[in-house]
Computed example of a mutant assay.
Amino acid sequence: MTLRRESFLGHVTERGKYDTPEEAERAARVVLALLGAHLVGDVRARLAARLPEDFALILLNPLQSAEPLSPERFVRATAAWIEGATEQTATWDVSAVLSTVADTAGDELLKEILLQLPTGYDLLFGHTRPT
Rank of each mutant, 00 (worst) to 15 (best):
N61M: 13
R46P: 09
V43S: 09
R46N: 14
A28C: 10
A56V: 11
R73N: 08
F74G: 00
A77N: 00
R46L: 14
L32E: 09
E53W: 05
E22I: 12
L63F: 10
A24S: 07
E53Q: 12
L39S: 06
L69W: 03
I58C: 07
R76T: 08
G36M: 11
A77R: 02
L35P: 10
L47G: 01
V31I: 13
A80I: 02
L35N: 14
P68M: 05
L47K: 00
A80L: 04
A48H: 14
P62Y: 08
E72W: 04
T78Y: 03
R76L: 09
A48K: 10
E83P: 00
I82Y: 02
G36W: 11
D42T: 13
A27W: 05
E67C: 07
V43K: 03
T78K: 03
V75F: 05
A37N: 12
F74R: 03
A27V: 06
N61C: 09
A33P: 11
L47D: 05
V75L: 04
H38Y: 12
A56H: 11
G41Q: 04
L47A: 04
G41E: 04
L34V: 03
A49L: 12
A27P: 02
P71A: 08
I58V: 15
L34Y: 03
R73K: 05
A28W: 01
E72M: 04
S65T: 15
A37H: 07
A28K: 08
E72C: 00
G36D: 08
F55I: 04
E23Y: 01
A66Q: 12
V31S: 11
T78N: 10
R50K: 15
F74A: 00
V30N: 07
S70V: 00
E22T: 10
G84S: 02
E83K: 03
P68F: 09
V31T: 13
L35D: 12
A45V: 12
V31F: 13
R50W: 11
L69R: 06
A37S: 15
A79E: 06
L34N: 02
E22D: 11
A66P: 09
L51N: 06
D42F: 01
L34Q: 09
P62V: 07
I58W: 08
V30H: 07
L34W: 05
P62I: 08
L60N: 09
R76G: 03
A66D: 12
T78W: 03
E72L: 10
S65M: 14
A33T: 13
A27R: 03
P68Y: 08
V40D: 07
W81E: 15
D54Y: 08
E67V: 13
E25N: 00
E22K: 11
E83N: 00
A66K: 09
L35K: 12
S65Q: 15
D42K: 11
W81I: 12
F55V: 01
V31K: 14
R26N: 10
P71Y: 04
E67Q: 14
V43P: 00
A24E: 03
I82K: 09
D42R: 08
A80Y: 02
L39P: 01
I82C: 01
L51P: 09
G41D: 06
E67R: 13
R29S: 13
A45T: 11
